[in-house]
Design a protein around this nucleic acid. Sequence first.
RNA 1: GCGCGGGUGGCGGAAUUGGCAGACGCGCUAGGCUCAGAACCUAGUGGUAGCAAUACUAUGCGGGUUCAACUCCCGCCUCGCGCACCA
Length: 735
Amino acid sequence: IKHKIHPRDWTLKNIKRMTQQLKSWGLGYDWEREVTTCLPDYYAWTQWLFLRLYSKGLAYRKEAVVNWCDSCKTVLANEQVVDGKCERCSTEVKQKKLKQWFLKITDYADRLLEDLNLLEEWPQRVKAMQENWIGKSCGVEINFPVKGSGVNLNCFTTRVDTIFGATFIALNWEHPAVKELINEAENKKDIELFIEKVKKQPSSARLLDSFEKEGIFTGKFALNPLNGEKIPIWIANYVLSGYGTGAIMCVPAHDGRDLEFALKYGLAVKKVIKAQDSDFETESEDEVSSGSAYEGQGILINSGDFNGLASEEAKARIADYIEKNKIGRRLTQYKLRDWLVSRQRYWGAPIPIVYCESCGEVALRDEDLPVLLPEVKEFLPTGKSPLTYIKDFMEVKCPKCGAQARRETDTMDTFVDSSWYYLRYISPKEQNKPFVSSDVNNWLPVDQYVGGVEHAILHLMYSRFINKFLQDEGLVNFPEPFKKLFTQGMIVKDGFKMSKSKGNVVAPDYIIDKYGADTMRLYILFMGPPQKDAEWQDEGLQGIWRFMQRALRLVDILEDCDSGKSGNEPSVLEIGLLKKIHLTIKEVTRDLEGGFQFNTAISRIMELVNQVYRGMNEGVLRREILEETVDVIFLLLAPFTPHISEEVNARLGHKGSILLRDWPRVDQKYLLEKELEIAVSVNGKVKDRMVISVDWTKDLIEDKALSLGKIKKALSASKPKKIIYIDKKLLNIVV
RNA sequence: GCGCGGGUGGCGGAAUUGGCAGACGCGCUAGGCUCAGAACCUAGUGGUAGCAAUACUAUGCGGGUUCAACUCCCGCCUCGCGCACCA
């Protein structure tokens, strides 16, 4: 749309191009299972999913204050608003009241939170981010009656233990009681002016450190239901409307934000918690005057019957009291909101709902699917879905009564498509259902998922939600879709993430033309640990290219080499090389199996190549030994450099593909050392090293060490106090 | 403010989880090859002092535990990311 090209043409063209690119890298995908979420054979099932959710009351339409992007002319999910701006175009997001479709992810909030515990092989970071996003907190909602009126102000608090310290109440300007409260106020005009001012403050301003708390007194008072104290009611700009009730009880002594506000407007500060080990008399006043509130747990004071209790117990007892006297109730709050899936974009799967004069909102039947996205000429955003203007699309018979009805014109957020695609991979060609449950249950959950952290909340939370829903529907039998998660870093160049807008992209096609796909693959994996960001350096690529040439030259050397005598005992030099070969096999295997440690695996293969060259410098290597070495080198390289390894495999006379050959095996006989070198240190500082035989006793090793010239010198006259021997590693002499 | 990660040579990064810090690569220096250059080969390369053997010093800073600390503990500094007046 941005480029004024039809989204379908653009998308299909890019899919084609990227498929070519992925193939040119030599990546081993099963292309038979490719799915395209924007084509009807896929999105029919996305619509089917929507209908299942609808039938369970988990897809619903409501009027709500939603995020609106003026530039994209569409609503956005909370998850797609970053720093108060549209994640796509960075336009300041506005709040608008609209009737929109939501998916009830909040019904699953507790399970999404609880089941994070099942995800043992997910990064802590991602789990922490989801936990944060769900934002569960337990507390009470308590009624503060307004003096001289029938109004009750409900306030949610997690700090039930501090209710006796509430010295004022603050309301968001949108709170439904505001109108009534200020009706007879003397300064009604001023209050209205204040509200107008606060309304205009952009929501992103709250994020700034410079955001100043402001408020105005309504002239009304509320009664603290626990102690009957009369406390003033204010309207304040720091109270959120979307969380809790939009009204808060303020305890300045134990909340920094409330204290800041109280000090500014000269409101009372009342301490009701003292730190476990503190002396109340001496500390209280200083704290408040220095502007810091005691926010920790402690012992209750100034709290009537609850004095002397510890915070934790007090919370429970006060909550009991509140419920018993019917002045409030226990309540759990979440930050997680329902998932807004309506989009006013053309490019998406139409929501399969129609509106009928007599039946109202009606869901389509499965046999009506797919609702095809019609051809349009006009797809630029206008604020209404472009589908609105297409008569053939809009006009439809009501599936219930057959009368003329009109279609829903919103399309679905594309994250709905991607929340279940891993299931479709199991049954990509299935015509009659989205997937075959028995096959899905056999193959899934996904063993290893790889992706960027940018999906930590959006895609990975939505997929978990949908998977749990499908589990409840009996269509899958596992609670979590992705068993292991690996989040890879970004490639950075000149200090910025590679991107077209920064103009620092290194085109893979160009690299492949110049150096070949293998060199590029090897370089990318050698750059550093894949979970971290890595800096692209052309020199590094050159280094890898050099290494590949060096390794390939060994094949030339081998081919020019006489067949030579065989059957002789290997020379010392050859034994050294054989040991290195098997050590390399062992370590490369461990690096690959133990995690994604490609960078170290590659460096070990480099070491092996280096040792071959060093060996040839020092003496003669027989052809059979050299051949074994070259063979192992390219077998170990095969996962990284499949094309070149394949070629070498053929040159060495092997029939068939190298990818079908066995992974090299470690021959333990080369790793069993008869002799080895250990370090000898004095007081932890290495002074010398020596060769020992594995069958030596500790006494023998000590004697030998103490006879070393450098050790004698280091010890000079002092007598060893203690000698510590770490098997096969070092001997430390303490003096 | 809360939550995750990091901090090791000129640079990217290793260190078998408490046991020889700096593997491997880049860069740099010297030498070889060459008419010359590129490429390639050989050697060297944390810092300070020394011709050298060697000595001292060194993993963000300060303490601690230990025969031994990049690694563990306590207290700081700093950078990156995520969330954020969530009551």
